[in-house]
Each structure stands twice: as C-alpha cells, then as structure tokens.
C-alpha cells in the first residue's frame, strides 16, 4: 500500500506539473511546463533551466536503462534536449510537455537503434548496474537482491516492454500517453506494460521462493 502511494506520488509529481496556471512565475505557483517552455521561447533562459531541472534525471534514467549503455544514453540525452531547444520556436502547448519530451526521446532512441544495429548485443552497462561494490553476494540483504534481480530482469525485457515500463515508472505517463509516445494504441501499451510488470514481479518472487 505504501509502495502504491509512493508510486502515485511520483506519478503525480510529473502529472501535476501541468495543473498550475501558465505564466505565473512570481506568484508562488509552480510554473507549468508548457508555460516554462513558452517563456524560454521568449528568451527566458531561467525558465528553461527550471524545466530542465524538473525532467533531467528521470529522462536520463529512462535513456540509461533503455539503451543499456551510458555513453549512448548521454549522447541521446543531449540530442533530445537539443531538439527540445530547437523546437521552441514552433512549440505549441497542445499536449503535456512530458509527453512531448518522451516522444522526442523515444524517437531519438529508435533512430539510434536504426543507426547502430550492434546495440542489441551491448551489455556494457549490465555489470555496472548489477554490481554492488564492496558487497559480497552472501552479505546482500533481501532487498538488495530484489533490486539486483529486478535490474537484471529489466535489462532482459524486450525493448518495447522495457520502453513501456520505463515510460510508466520514470515519466509517470498513463496508458494513453504511453500509446501516444510509442505510436501504438492503448491496448498494445497496456499489454506490453502488463507483460513487463509480470516478468519483473516473477523475477523478484523467484528470489523469495529460492530463499
């Protein structure tokens, strides 16, 4: 239950960024993402900095786990923000900024996949993500082991399922928004997410059953 509340809080943090009044920077309100983008369009660099600080870490984690390679994730990360910056002149707040941002990120990742076919066999990040420096496997707690198995299972997921799960967890997108980002329909997104969650849950339960 507590985990559900925490998850909802994370989702709400991302979703509620669009619930405040636009263009209200100095009135105690949290500026809307779209309003920040429009202010940046008008030359307000600070607005972009606020927007960036709000989304940089979730986007970085999304790309890091999606690409499974740190340098590639950083390249795509820069590419994504570069496109966001360049698109400010034509930006229209017709949809939630988070959806717009992750659609750009998703497309950049797809482009990267098309350019680098060798991506699928790259497991450089696997060892880094799984390692727990200074800890021996027998000293890891149950929770640490659960995280270890979840991380491994996440990297083993098919790209579409991993993408859908990360969009749900990191970006806080709902099924409709995930469908819009990935260019699929709602049922497809729901199916992918359900498969991903079940596999991850099975990986965690496997650890518990083994003990």
């Amino acid at each position: 239950m507590a985990a559900s509340a925490e998850s909802m809080a994370r989702s709400t943090t991302a979703l509620c960024s669009g619930a405040t009044l636009p263009y209200a920077p100095a009135m105690g309100h949290t500026p809307d993402d779209s309003a920040l983008m429009l202010r940046y369009k008008d030359g307000d660099i600070k607005a972009f900095e606020t927007l960036y600080r709000r989304h940089n870490d979730p986007l970085y984690r999304y790309l890091l786990r999606l690409c499974r390679h740190r340098d590639t994730a950083e390249d795509i990360f820069q590419d994504v923000w570069g496109k966001i910056v360049k698109s400010r002149a034509t930006y229209r707040p017709t949809a939630k900024f988070t959806t717009f941002l992750y659609r750009v990120a998703h497309n950049c990742f797809i482009d990267h996949l098309r350019r680098n076919k060798r991506h699928s066999g790259n497991t450089e990040l696997d060892a880094e993500l799984h390692s727990h420096p200074g800890e021996q496997p027998e000293t890891l707690t149950e929770r640490s082991l659960a995280k270890e198995r979840l991380s491994r299972a996440l990297l083993d997921l098919p790209d579409e399922q991993r993408d859908t799960f990360l969009l749900h967890e990191e970006a806080g997108l709902n099924l409709d928004e995930i469908a819009a980002v990935t260019g699929s329909n709602r049922e497809t997104a729901k199916s992918r997410l359900r498969y991903a969650v079940n596999k991850l849950r099975a990986a965690i339960d496997e650890q518990s059953e083994r003990q």
């Binding site: 985990a3 994370r10 849950r201």
Partner: peptide, 19 residues
C-alpha cells in the same frame, strides 16, 4: 494488473541515478 506495488517500489529503490 499493470501496476504492481512491489515492482514499483523495488524499481524506485533501484533507480537512483542522476544526470
């Protein structure tokens, strides 16, 4: 279910990387 609290909680604890 598409939302699993245990999975979400574990992932939250796992994903602490920052840009």
């Amino acid at each position: 279910r598409v939302d699993d609290p245990l999975v979400a909680d574990t992932y939250t604890a796992l994903a602490q990387e920052r840009a």
